[in-house]
């Protein structure tokens, strides 16, 4: 696992300060979407090899949610952005 994360608010930090909160690439379904869509969202997890987007929570630092883009095979970290900033970019 990537062992050093550059938090946009705190700088370079060890991974022990973070909690991984899951896939950041998929959005939440609408309230009235089908049961299948909700079942997929709540229970079905991919286990990708390669580049992934994940929510990381900087629990022991600034307590902000971050979106970390990293490679699960090579442990390389490509980018780290605040989740609010990530959502703003996605909305555009």
């Amino acid at each position: 696992m990537a062992s050093l994360i550059t938090c946009p608010h705190c700088g370079l930090r060890p991974k022990e300060e973070f909690a991984i909160r899951g896939d950041a690439s998929r959005g939440r379904p609408e309230p009235m979407d089908s049961d299948e869509a909700w079942h997929d969202y709540v229970y079905v997890r991919a286990n990708p090899r390669g580049r992934t987007l994940e929510h990381w929570h900087h629990v022991a630092g600034c307590r902000r949610f971050l979106v970390v883009e990293r490679d699960t095979a090579t442990h390389e970290v490509y980018s780290v952005v605040d989740a609010a900033e990530f959502a703003r970019r996605a909305a555009q």
Binding site: C10, R13, P14, E16, E17, A60, G61, C62, R63
Partner: peptide, 19 residues
């Protein structure tokens, strides 16, 4: 603490949340 505490990196008046 896993932070860079060198005088040049962690200056007087600096502060951070850490483990």
């Amino acid at each position: 603490i896993g932070l860079d505490l060198h005088p040049a990196a962690f200056t007087i008046g600096g502060s951070a949340n850490a483990l």
